[in-house]
Simulated scan of single mutants.
Amino acid sequence: MAIEAVKAYFKALGREQDILEFAVSSATVELAAQAAGVIPARIAKTLSFKREDGCVLLVTAGDSRVDNAKFKTEFGCKARMLTAEEVLAATGHAVGGVCPFAIDNIKVSVFADVSLKRFETVFPACGSSNSAIELHCDELYEYARSEKWVDVCKDWQG
């Protein structure tokens, strides 16, 4: 189970006890916000895109949308999302619980979008459709082993 891998990952970081497991689904931004008791924008959603050499995981604020032109400029390819089966194969996490943690696939590159930086803390999933963890943005960046901060989203500036 993916959440077990994420728990082991965070246990090594001394943070396993910080994983939240909800009695309700957190599989969408709206459901996760309700479960965590925060606004949807503070949910750190992880989106998966195809790339010639593997895939890009983009962690972004819950209220943002990918800007296709910015994405192409940053990554040199069109923003084409993976299928549910491809996401599971690449990350080990099923749609609804996809997160940038406990991923051992060297063909997966993680990037954090600047849309997250307006919040002190955000809530990414933890490998299941009813889990999350509250992290400072710098912690998210570090624990996700992000390659860099990018600016590839729109509709979040207000």
Results as ranks from 00 to 15, higher is better:
A94M: 15
V95W: 04
Y9S: 11
T91I: 07
V59W: 04
L82D: 10
F10L: 10
L57H: 05
L20W: 15
D104T: 12
Q17K: 15
R51N: 14
A61M: 13
F111T: 03
A132M: 13
F49A: 07
V87K: 01
A112L: 12
P40G: 08
Y9G: 02
E139G: 00
T60E: 01
I3D: 08
G127I: 00
V98F: 11
I133P: 00
G158I: 13
N130E: 06
A144H: 00
Y141A: 13
I3C: 11
S128F: 01
K117S: 13
S131Y: 01
R42Q: 08
A44Y: 02
S64P: 05
V114S: 08
A44S: 10
A2Q: 08
K11G: 10
L58D: 06
E16L: 07
C99G: 07
Q17Y: 15
F71D: 04
C153T: 11
D138A: 10
T73R: 09
G37S: 09
L31T: 02
G97R: 12
A8H: 06
W156V: 04
T83H: 13
V24K: 07
K154G: 07
E4I: 14
A41H: 07
E86G: 00
S115H: 01
A8F: 04
E139S: 08
T28L: 02
V108Y: 01
H136Y: 15
V98P: 01
A132F: 06
D104E: 15
Q17E: 07
C77T: 11
K78S: 07
A8L: 13
E16C: 10
A27V: 03
A61Q: 03
V59F: 05
C126M: 05
K45S: 00
E74A: 04
I43A: 12
L135H: 06
D151M: 09
T60I: 09
G14L: 02
L58K: 04
K107E: 13
F75Q: 06
G14W: 02
I106K: 14
E4V: 12
K11V: 10
T91N: 03
K11R: 15
A32H: 02
G62R: 09
I19T: 09
F75W: 07
S131W: 04
F119G: 02
D53S: 08
W156K: 12
W149L: 07
G92P: 02
V122H: 03
F119A: 09
A33K: 10
S128N: 12
T83Q: 14
C137G: 04
Y141N: 00
K11W: 14
R118F: 14
I39T: 13
G62Y: 10
A27I: 03
V98S: 04
V98E: 01
V108I: 00
V59S: 06
T121C: 09
Q34L: 14
R145Q: 15
C77E: 08
K72E: 14
K45G: 06
C126Y: 01
D138N: 13
A102L: 03
V56I: 15
E142H: 11
G127P: 05
I103K: 03
A94S: 12
K117Y: 05
E147M: 04
Q157I: 15
S48V: 11
V87D: 03
V122E: 05
I19V: 08
